[in-house]
Design a protein around this nucleic acid. Structure first.
Length: 327
DNA sequence: AATATGCACAACCGCCTTTTG
DNA sequence: ACAAAAGGCGGTTGTGCATAT
């Protein structure tokens, strides 16, 4: 059987019961939710394919899984995204692209679907409005500011590719863990405090740590400024800021509870081992919205340029040589 | 009041990867 | 080693609600 035929067969009747006869589609009713929730709480989800019949649902397993992971799971946070969450999404998107599940792993209790929707309906539009290409995170008409700095952009892209390569190489099971390290697939987990498991993220995200802790803080230190990009709602600012990457991963990849972040009282993350990593000249960005400043991107690039030397120096300690893009 | 439009988000679809036999 | 099943991901669509005309 050729591959395409195999795929067709799989999609039509082999993929967790999609398109089966009598399979209900569309919005879930409260009764269906109750059945699914009750069953999983009692027995765990087990095999998604066989779950609908056991739970008395006329749904395909895939639909049940999505309903559970995106809506019914008890550890889901709903409602507006905080400033810090939006900031994290933007930063991670710059690093990882549309890897929503990976991004979701760094936003406790948020689902990939929710983040994806929020990106598409809010952040992406705002970036576009401001003339920033949401895919490249570069100014659309700002090439004049950037043309002389292609080198650092190439560095950025290289690091991003390296990060991606690491993600590819890393066993995928880290991605399948529910956000926040919650193990939710067995009955026990619903009956007692969810088990915290140390997620095993690749050390490549140390790049993000550096960026987040140093570079971005120079520009985002004025929350009003950041607000113009990542939100147009006061409520979002009023939302208590969630810690971003409050669990820090050591350069050897091990889990570290790390320095906690209390954004509400302005305690900054300390990004050891890069704590000496500093930028100068943030005075230009305290008066006005830096993201609207005509000089923003030029200075942003300069900042990156200087910062990159530091980042790449530190990064090189934890990575293989450029010739070998993976760990 | 009726209709059009925009927005948010839940849900689906198709493809890919991983697991299992 | 291979095929099939199961699970997961990202893109897209559908639906309901709010607002504008």
């Amino acid at each position: 059987m050729v591959k395409s035929e195999k795929k067709k067969k799989q999609n039509n009747n082999g993929n967790m019961g999609v398109l089966g006869v009598g399979v209900k589609k569309g919005p879930w009713t409260p009764e269906e939710d109750r059945k699914l929730l009750s069953y999983i709480q009692q027995y765990g989800h087990g095999s998604w394919r066989s779950l609908p019949a056991k739970a008395g649902l006329k749904r395909c397993g895939k639909s049940c899984r999505l309903r559970w992971t995106n809506y019914l799971r008890p550890d889901i946070k709903r409602g507006k995204f905080s400033l810090e969450e939006e900031r994290t999404i933007i930063q991670l998107h710059a690093l990882l692209g549309n890897r929503w599940s990976t991004i979701a792993a760094h936003l406790p209790r948020r689902t990939d679907n929710e983040i994806k929707n929020h990106w598409n309906s809010h952040i992406k539009k705002r970036m576009t409005k401001m003339g920033i290409d949401p895919m490249t995170h570069k100014p659309k008409n700002g090439s004049q500011h950037l043309s002389s700095n292609l080198n650092h952009m190439a560095q950025w892209e290289a690091a991003r590719l390296e990060a991606e390569a690491r993600l590819v190489q890393k066993p995928k099971n880290h991605q399948t863990q529910p956000p926040c390290g919650l193990v939710s697939s067995s009955i026990q987990d619903h009956q007692k405090t969810p088990t915290k498991v140390p997620p095993s993220y690749p050390p490549c995200l140390d790049v993000l740590k550096v960026w987040q802790g140093n570079l971005w803080s120079n520009y985002a230190i004025n929350n009003e400024s950041l607000q113009s990009l990542i939100s147009n709602s006061n409520a979002s600012v009023a939302t208590p800021a969630m810690p971003v990457l409050s669990h820090v991963y050591n350069i050897n990849g091990s889990y570290d509870q790390g320095p906690t972040t209390k954004h509400n009282d302005a305690t900054e993350i300390k990004m050891d081992p890069f704590e000496d990593f500093t930028y100068v000249d943030d005075a230009n960005f305290v008066n006005d919205d830096p993201l609207r400043s005509p000089d923003f991107w030029e200075e942003f690039v300069d900042l990156l340029d200087g910062g990159w030397k530091n980042i790449t120096n530190n990064f090189s300690m934890i990575t293989s040589p450029p010739a070998s893009p993976v760990c």
